[in-house]
Design a protein around this nucleic acid. Structure first.
Length: 579
RNA sequence: CGGGGUGUGGCGCAGCUUGGUAGCGCGUCCGCUUUGGGAGCGGAAGGCCGCCGGUUCAAAUCCGGCCACCCCGACCA
């Protein structure tokens, strides 16, 4: 491709709207443009990267036994009513000219299950693995980071159907490897973490986190074993015992208008870790439950729900809180509460002389201790894990990192198949509910995450596997060396190396800057030494450069391409199932 | 949805307090010079000042309403 004819609108100045490195660079390098909040157009270079990532996803899912299909983006709402997910708040809703309710697909469990229930009759047709790569729509509360969290994005979604848990487990392992291989081929530094399956349902799930400081998700990694989990999911180990203490007498203090932990710690000048945060929840069954965590901690609602045997929990209404505590919201404490189960985070066993709400308006209470002043009905791991907490699997310490979720795999079980009546006849002729798995990989998000993780002060740094072109050929003096460079361009193409040939009548500096910004891995320069039959060759982001005879340049570039690809493929081949 | 901020040639911004013929840098086009890390000089094109309404002789500027976009939080299947 000749640069002079290419649509590559690079920007010298940074668009004001972009904060993240990836967002700025993808705009500046002419890979994409914004149409609306969370909605982006992919320009030629960006589109080539997206297509290459999609191709790798396709190759790897085919390798794992998947069959590609293409489902509609426009769905009748009734289909989503079957699983109750039509009420999800991020779903885009619309009506047709006849006032029929439609939604835009944010994922496709319902649609694929509808197809399978209609066509699969016998255990002989299972297992089955079907996938697609398609645009998804989600009405995000707040799109951000450019294409990292968009409202329209390209996603790979795969669904598997089984007659047994063992069969699901096997496919889950295959997909575990599949996503790992994809990310390795993209050259990404990532971490597989145990994840919360959330409202999509199911039991086991893992997320593929691309490790970047700007990532929205917090993950925790053990510094001495392989345990790794999303902060939403992460369990916490026992940890060391607290120091001994002498119980002091209880004391009531007036704290007019101070409701939050921050306000109270400021006012009373006690550290948040000396406080008990008393959170009052209601379960789906209408039961009132009191959750206690240390003042500087956050309660993890998923953990609370699990500790209560899987009940749904939600913060109680102000009326319920007043009825239970006799005080307005903001002054609750665990002492003297009747009619509610008290469940406390294990950390509260360490230490004492806690500060909490007094269960009366505008007052807090000092020096309360478990046993003497309040009792706990159940101890549990209730708080959101943070760096420094103990590993639940060994004696190590958890380290906190940030990541972008690129992929998520779930053992779904029968949640959707049961709700939608997807059954088959087993060998005995008995009807059985199909067991399902679901797997998702954000294609455009992965592209943004690559830009975030693989960039330097000069611009992007694409791995050879997905670079928009494998080589960029800079002809510094088109008048003198244009014919020679054009011939080399043809030779490179013939050798299987895709080339962006910079034939523009620009100064050398402009060409170097643009080449670095765009981030094509192999840079070939036809410059001063062209008259001696030599060109320069180097890899973007690496300092070594060498002079190569013009006659060997195409072959050298092809060999370099193969070597760079082999590095990535070797990493992919080393991926092993972690489950 | 709560809080904060911004909308002025393609991009980045000034002008708004104190109303009076819309400006700068980059980019674009033409010419000459230059030519290995975003060149220099000269010339030129390009703007319903986000939208609607109000005040005024006069509104980018003041007032009201709306919209869009960004950031923080809530949320995130």
């Amino acid at each position: 491709m000749n640069y002079s004819r290419a649509f590559v609108p690079t920007l010298r100045e940074v668009p004001a709207e972009a904060e993240l490195i990836s967002h700025r660079l993808l705009l500046r390098a002419g890979f994409m443009r914004k149409l609306a909040s969370g909605v982006y157009s992919w320009l030629p270079l960006g589109h080539r990267v997206v297509q290459k990532v999609a191709a790798i996803v396709r190759e790897e899912n085919n390798r794992a036994g998947g069959q590609e299909l293409l489902l509609p983006a426009l769905h009748p709402r009734e289909l989503w009513d079957e699983t109750g997910r039509s009420a999800v708040d991020v779903i885009f809703r619309l009506k047709d000219r006849n006032e029929r309710d439609l939604v835009l697909g944010m994922t496709h469990e319902e649609v694929i299950t509808d197809i399978v229930r209609g066509e699969v009759r016998s255990y002989r047709q299972l297992p089955l693995m079907l996938y697609q790569i398609q645009t998804k729509f989600r009405d995000e509360p707040r799109p951000r980071g450019g294409v990292i969290r968009g409202r329209e994005f390209l996603m790979h979604d795969c669904y598997s159907f089984h007659t047994s848990q063992e069969s699901l487990d096997e496919t889950y392992r295959q997909m575990y490897v599949c996503y790992g291989r994809i990310l390795k081929r993209l050259g990404l530094d990532f971490q597989v973490v145990e994840a919360e399956s959330g409202s999509i349902g199911g039991s086991v799930s893992h997320e593929y986190m691309i490790v970047v400081d700007s990532g929205e998700d917090t993950i925790l990694l053990c510094d001495s074993c392989t345990y790794a989990a999303n902060a939403e999911r992460c369990e916490i180990g026992q940890g060391a015992d607290g120091e001994a203490f002498e119980p002091d007498p209880v004391k009531l203090v007036q704290t007019p208008g101070r409701r939050t932990i921050d306000e109270v710690t400021d006012f009373l000048e006690v550290p948040a870790e000396k406080m008990i945060k008393t959170l009052i929840y209601e379960t789906g069954g209408g039961e009132v439950v009191v959750g206690l965590v240390r003042g500087d901690r956050d309660l993890n609602e998923a953990k609370l729900a699990r500790a209560l045997g899987g009940a749904k929990v939600a913060l109680a209404s102000p009326e319920t809180i007043e009825k239970l505590t006799g005080a307005p919201v903001g002054f609750a404490g665990p002492q003297g509460l009747k009619g509610a189960k008290i469940i406390a985070d294990g950390e509260l066993r360490n230490g004492g002389n806690w500060v909490s709400g007094a269960n009366e308006a505008d007052a807090h209470i000092l020096n309360i201790n478990e046993g003497r002043d309040f009792s706990v009905d159940q101890w549990a791991d209730l708080r959101v894990a943070t760096g420094g907490d103990s590993c639940p699997r060994c004696s190590g310490t958890l380290v906190e990192k940030h990541g972008v979720e690129a992929g998520h795999i779930f053992k779904l079980g029968t949640k959707y198949s049961a709700a939608m009546g997807a059954t088959y006849l087993d060998a005995n002729g008995a009807g059985q509910t199909i067991i399902m798995g679901t797997y998702g990989f954000g294609v455009t998000r992965a592209v943004a995450a690559m830009a975030e993780q693989m960039a330097d002060a000069d611009g992007l740094l694409w791995p050879i596997s997905v670079a928009p072109y494998e080589a960029v050929l800079l002809c510094l003096n088109v008048e003198e060396d244009g014919a020679l460079a054009a011939k080399l361009c043809d030779e490179l193409e013939a050798a299987g190396v895709s080339v962006l040939y910079d034939d523009r009548a620009e100064r050398a500096g402009v060409k170097f800057k643009d080449a670095d910004l765009i981030g094509i891995p192999i840079q070939i320069v036809v410059g001063r030494s062209a008259k001696d039959g030599k060109v320069e060759m180097r890899v973007r982001g690496r300092s070594e450069k060498k002079e190569v005879a013009l006659s060997h340049a195409a072959a050298e570039a092809a060999a370099l391409k193969d070597a760079l690809l082999a590095e990535l493929d070797g990493a992919a081949d080393a991926v092993r199932p972690g489950v």
